[in-house]
Design a protein around this nucleic acid. Sequence first.
DNA 1: CATACGTGGTT
DNA 2: TAACCAAGTAT
Length: 303
Amino acid sequence: MRAASETPTEPALPSPELLAERLLPWFDANNRTELPWRRPGTTAWGVLVSEVMSQQTQVARVAPVWEAWMERWPTPADLAAAPTADVLREWGRMGYPRRALRLQECARAIAEDHGGTVPADPAELEKLPGIGNYTAAAVAVFHYGGRHAVVDTNVRRVVARLGGRADAGTATTRADLAATASLLPEDAPTAARVSLALMELGALVCTARKTECAACPLSDACGFSGQEVPAGPSRKRQRYKGTNRHVRGEVMALLRDADGPVERARIDAVWHDARMVNEAVAQLIEDGLIGTDEAGRFELPSR
DNA sequence: CATACGTGGTT
DNA sequence: TAACCAAGTAT
């Protein structure tokens, strides 16, 4: 008799041995080796940059920016020394430009506090600006080959489905981390490959809107195999059109594309609601994404 | 735990 | 056409 406090029975997750046995051959055949940061010789810094750029931006959009970026600023010291306006322009239209600011701060911290070497310890990585639980683990695992759970949206979804659920919850939980960790084999280099393969499976086969169980190496070990993904949003989505973020985006686009400092009147012209422009401009200044010159005109920050 | 934070590809 | 959602982080 199970205690009342126990959760209902769910399909058990596969053993690490079975998972690796199924997943690794699949990964060897399906690994997207064309992703530029997967080229042999990519530095830890290059991997870190690719991970930050890929936070909420599709990898296909990231790849060309990453190429140009690493050509221009190959090391943390290079990015640390760059004018921030150049950094924001190179970031282009990838979205969430605060990430670019954090990445430059990260470069400065690594250059100044870590002798230019990207840390290998997730706890140390997570202290850096813009580096959270996922990115810290990703660098520690994908570059350094460590044995840590790498839990992004793909992995959370795959692990949830292995356990018989259609999808994971809204945020990464302790349970997600523990469940993913329980799937890792003891050997660190093998665990690192399993981590990347799990993510790749979620990106290519076990996707948000549909499952491709026929192409999945884990289908016979999966609690969700053969089931349809329920229609409708898996979680609450934020609107974009007409929001403050939208106005911020318009202002940033104007300043990125401008040759020099921009008059306030041109800023005001990006949006019909003057109050929203005021709010957006004030926030962007506060965030350090834009600045003003001695004449009160607006521009991307020089430093 | 919920929400703010950009932009565009895919369905 | 819209809706959905993308290698998340900070608050």
